[in-house]
């Protein structure tokens, strides 16, 4: 049961041990609570995704795209984003192809909003988030959300500080969702999803993107009885039977139900499971094609 990424693609073992690893470096720990709020930026190293690097690590060893290729791709994406409706209507295959190559990091947040339709939804509801943001949440949800704020990507610079901007925005987005869908309320797996979104866009945009994920991409995943995730677990297991009968038999014999390993994979859209560079690429395709890439 792999636990969360965070260290990019340092080494397989490191990325598997992930965010549960201790921040044993006293320098990092002392950065703690108020450095970020006070605007005090102590010297700390992060990888290009914003995850703290422990001093002895050398960072990721990923293949970097050449600047020229990246600029070309950015130009293509900018053209698409400026003429989005036209592209969606006439050249959807091309959009998909470009998503498969990976969305340029500088435009990823915007692209996700267009792909998911959250941009349109936000434009249709101009004051909704501000309204929800100003309302007090149901204490039942506020209490449980607050207990989760410091438990999302604690080794990402945005979320490392208790009460810092990242955690504040996370609270705003999650609380707003409980007011937007009081029938669903808050599910703990929404927190890592919202945190990934906040790494790429402001709170209001992240909120509408979360709405799209919960309603369009993964409907029923976070609702009261968690039926959808259990059903998908059974579907995954029967697919496994087709793809690898040996693995299927072994897991069955050892009584390892799919719900034991796939709950976190699917509910968090692999954000805690894969090396970070892969998470982003999977999310690019997730927004482009919908949930079945995860299946």
């Amino acid at each position: 049961m792999a636990r969360s990424p965070g260290e990019g693609s340092v080494s397989p073992s490191a990325s598997l041990r992930g965010t549960r690893e201790t921040l044993s470096d006293p320098e990092l720990e002392s950065l703690g609570s108020d450095s970020e709020i006070n605007g005090f930026t102590a010297e700390r190293k992060t990888d290009k995704y914003g995850f703290l690097i422990k001093t002895e690590e050398n960072g990721g060893r990923e293949e970097e795209l050449s600047v020229d290729v990246l600029r070309q791709r950015e130009a293509k994406w900018l053209d698409m984003l400026f003429n989005w409706d036209k592209w969606m209507a006439k050249r959807h295959k091309k959009i998909k192809l470009r998503c498969q190559k990976g969305i340029p990091p500088s435009l990823r947040g915007r692209a996700w909003q267009y792909l998911s339709g959250s941009r349109v939804k936000m434009d249709q509801n101009p004051n909704k988030f501000t309204e929800l943001d100003s309302m007090a949440g149901d204490p039942k949800w506020v209490d449980i959300i607050e207990r989760d704020l410091h438990r999302q990507f604690p080794f990402h610079e945005m979320f490392v500080a208790r009460g810092g901007h990242g955690q504040q925005d996370l609270f705003r987005v999650l609380k707003a969702y409980t007011l937007y869908r009081p029938d669903e309320g808050y599910c703990q797996a929404q927190a890592p999803i919202a945190a990934v979104l906040l790494m790429h866009m402001p709170a209001e945009q992240a909120f509408w993107c979360l709405v799209q994920i919960c309603e369009k991409y993964l409907p029923g995943y976070y609702s009261e009885k968690l039926e959808a995730i259990q059903l998908d677990g059974r579907i995954l297991f029967s697919l496994l039977r087709k793809v690898s009968a040996v693995a299927y038999k072994h897991l069955s014999k050892q009584k390892i139900d799919p719900i034991l390993y796939m709950t976190e994979w699917f509910m968090c859209a692999f954000s805690r499971t894969l090396p970070w560079s892969s998470v982003l690429r999977v999310w690019d395709m997730f927004f482009c094609e919908g949930n079945f890439v995860c299946h």
């Binding site: 636990r3 921040l23 410091h150 890592p192």
Partner: peptide, 29 residues
């Protein structure tokens, strides 16, 4: 949620305590 179940377990099995850790989604062992 948040009473420290995962921390109890980590302390017992690995003798480690992490002030920074992630919430448990689903089941783990």
């Amino acid at each position: 949620s948040g009473v420290g179940k995962t921390c109890l377990l980590c302390r017992f099995t690995d003798n480690e305590f992490h002030p920074s850790h992630i919430s448990t989604i689903g089941v783990d062992f």
